[in-house]
Design a protein around this nucleic acid. Structure first.
Lengths: 336, 336
DNA sequence: TTGTATGCGTTATCAG
DNA sequence: CTGATAACGCATACAA
C-alpha cells in the first residue's frame, strides 16, 4: 500500500488540495498549516506519484535525446548531457534512432504520439531522415536540433561555426608553408561536412592556392574512413604534405595510417582534424584540431528546449558558436 | 483536444473496454469488432496516453541507468545501451549520480521514491556510495549492478573476470621475458581495480618472480593518472621493462608519457591495459589489452533486469564473463 | 464475446 | 486562506 496525498491530508487534518498546494509551493497557505502538512509528509514518508501528476498536467516532465549510432561524437554529447542532467527539473530519455530499422521508427513514433516526452533534442544525422522529418512536422513537438543540415528560420538549433573553423585550420596550414593540402570530407548530408569543405576551399582561394580535385576525398567521419582515405592519399604519386580530416575520428585514423607506413608526423606529414574530442589531446603527438564546442552546444540546446517548454519567449532560437584553432604537435612546417 | 479511448469506442460503436482489449492484444474479441476498432484507431489517429496507463498499472515502463562521471568506460556502456534500447519495451532514463552533489542525491531519491523507474542498472563506482546503498536498500527497487564492489548473494550483477584477465596479461608479459613489470592500480574501492591487482600478483607468484612493492603504483583509471604514474616510473633509477595499467585510459596515458620521453614502444618498453575500449585499437601502435566484454555485460545486465521485472524466475542472477587477451603491438620481447 | 462501473493519485475549478 | 468535487485517460473486477 503506497501512501497518497489523501493519507497526508488525513494525518495533517486538512484537505488534499491544501496538501497539493504545499507540495507545489503555491501561495495562500498559512505558515501554520504548511508546517503541519510538511510534518505529515515527513512522518508518512510521502512522495507524490509522478504518473498521476503527469496525467493531470498533460506533461511528461521528460525530454528525449535522439541519437544515431554510437560514436565518439555521440559519446561527447551524452557526457555533457549527463553532466547537466542533475540540475534539470526534467528527466532525460535516451532514444536511439536508426533510420534503417523499422522497429526503431515505430518506437520513435510511439514516443512522440503517446507524448512520453515534452520535447526533443535531435542530434545529427537524425535530422536528415525523411521519415523523421515528416513525423516531427506532423506531431509539432517542441524540439531543438544540434548542428542540423537545414537551417530554416523555423528550426531552433545550436551549431558550431564549421566554415570559420575550417578556414582557420586551412589558413594555419598555409602559413606553415603547405600548398598540397588534402581534405577528407564526411557524409554529404552532414551540415558539418559541407560547411567545413567550403571553409577549406575559401581559405585556398583567399591565399590563391589552386584547387586540386584529387586532394579532396569523400570519406566518413570515422576512424576507418580516415584510415582508408589516408592510405589512398599516401600511396599516390603526388602525396599531399598535409591532411586535413573533417573530424577527429578520421584524423586519428589518418594518423594511424601514416604511422603504420612509417611517415613521421609532423616532420614529413601534417595531420589535423576537427571537433577537439578528448582523444585528440590524448593521442601522440597531440592532434592539431578545431574546437567544435560540443559541450556548450549541448548545454545551450538543452536549456533552449527548456525555455521553449516553459513558454517563455525565447531570445535566440538560432545559435552558432565560434570555432577556435587548437594547435598541438601533429602539424608543422612543410618538409622538402 | 486529444483523442481518447472514448472517442475510439464511439467511432467504432463499442465500449471502451473492447477498445482496450484490442489495444492490449487481449483475446476474446471477435475478428469483426477488432477490425472495426482498428479502423477507428486509424481514422482518429489515436494513440493511448502513456501516463494514464502508467498510473493505473502502477508501472513506469522505464528503466534507469545510473552513471558516475563521464569517461570512456561510461561512454562504452551508453553506446551499448543505445544499441539495444530500440528493441526494448522499456524506455531508458539517463541518470547521473555524483555522490558529492547534494542536488544529485535529491534527484535520485525522488526518482526512486516517486517510482519514476521500475528498475535500475547501476554502474561502478556508484554502488560504493553509502547514501546510495542505503537508499536502494530501503526502497527495495529491482536492480542489476555492473561490476559491483560487493558480490553478496543478494545482489544481481554482471561482471568480467578481472582476476583471470590480469593473470593472463601478466603471464603474457612474463613469457616475453619481462621480470620488472610495473602495475598501475585504480581506485581501491573499485572491484575491478582490486581483482586485477590480485591477478597480477598471482601470476608473478606462479612464475616465481619476486614482488617488488615499488613496482605497484596507486593511480587512477584515467588518462591523467596513467600519464603521471608512468612519468614517475620512467624517471626512477630502476625503471620497469613493462607497464601494465589497470585500465586502457591509464595505459593510453602511460603510452603518451613514454612517447613524450622518447622511449620506443614496444622495443624499449612494453605497455598494456585492460578493457579493450575502441581507443586501444585506434592508438598507435595498437594497445595490447584484455577484453572486458562491456557490450555483453551491459546487454546481459539489461536483460537480466527485464527478467526480474517480468517476475519470471531468473536463471542466473550472478554472471561473470570470461576475459580474453588481446595482443596488439604495444608489448614485445624484453630489451637488454 | 461484450459492456458497466469503479479506481488509480494527482491537479484544477470554484464556491465558501 | 481552505475544501468538496470534478476531471485526466486508462485498466480491470464483475456482470451480462
Amino acid at each position: 500500500m503506497t501512501t497518497t496525498i489523501k493519507d497526508v491530508a488525513l494525518q495533517a487534518g486538512c484537505s488534499i488540495k491544501t496538501v497539493s498546494r504545499v507540495i507545489n509551493n503555491e501561495p495562500f497557505v498559512s505558515a501554520q498549516t504548511r508546517e503541519k502538512v510538511l510534518q505529515a509528509i515527513e512522518a508518512l514518508d510521502y512522495a507524490p506519484n509522478f504518473s498521476a501528476r503527469r496525467l493531470v498536467t498533460r506533461k511528461s516532465f521528460t525530454i528525449g535525446i535522439l541519437l544515431h549510432e554510437a560514436g565518439f561524437y555521440q559519446s561527447a554529447i551524452l557526457s555533457r548531457m549527463m553532466d547537466i542532467s542533475y540540475q534539470l527539473d526534467y528527466d532525460i530519455l535516451l532514444q536511439s534512432y536508426f533510420p534503417s530499422h523499422n522497429r526503431s521508427r515505430v518506437k520513435l513514433a510511439q514516443l512522440i504520439h503517446e507524448r512520453r516526452v515534452d520535447g526533443l533534442v535531435i542530434t545529427p544525422p537524425c535530422d536528415v531522415d525523411p521519415f523523421l522529418r515528416q513525423l516531427l512536422a506532423s506531431a509539432d513537438i517542441p524540439q531543438v536540433q544540434i548542428t542540423p543540415l537545414n537551417r530554416s528560420r523555423q528550426t531552433a538549433f545550436v551549431s558550431g561555426d564549421d566554415y570559420q573553423g575550417a578556414f582557420l585550420m586551412t589558413e594555419h596550414l598555409i602559413n606553415l608553408g603547405h600548398k598540397r593540402i588534402a581534405y577528407l570530407t564526411g557524409p554529404r548530408n552532414h551540415r558539418m561536412s559541407i560547411d567545413r569543405l567550403y571553409g577549406y576551399r575559401a581559405a585556398l582561394d583567399t591565399y590563391a592556392i589552386p584547387q586540386d580535385r584529387n586532394l579532396v576525398l569523400d570519406s566518413e567521419f570515422t576512424f576507418a574512413g580516415g584510415y582508408t582515405a589516408a592510405k589512398i592519399m599516401l600511396f599516390s604519386d603526388t602525396p599531399p604534405s598535409a591532411i586535413f580530416a573533417g573530424s577527429d575520428d578520421a584524423a586519428l585514423g589518418a594518423l594511424f595510417s601514416a604511422q603504420e607506413l612509417g611517415w613521421k608526423v609532423p616532420e614529413q606529414l601534417s595531420i589535423c582534424g576537427f571537433n577537439d574530442l578528448p582523444q585528440a589531446q590524448q593521442t601522440w603527438p597531440g592532434l592539431t584540431t578545431v574546437s567544435h564546442p560540443i559541450s556548450d552546444i549541448v548545454e545551450k540546446a538543452t536549456f533552449m528546449l527548456l525555455e521553449i517548454l516553459s513558454v517563455r519567449p525565447v531570445k535566440d532560437k538560432q545559435i552558432i558558436l565560434p570555432s577556435k584553432l587548437i594547435i598541438r604537435k601533429s602539424t608543422g612546417r612543410v618538409f622538402d
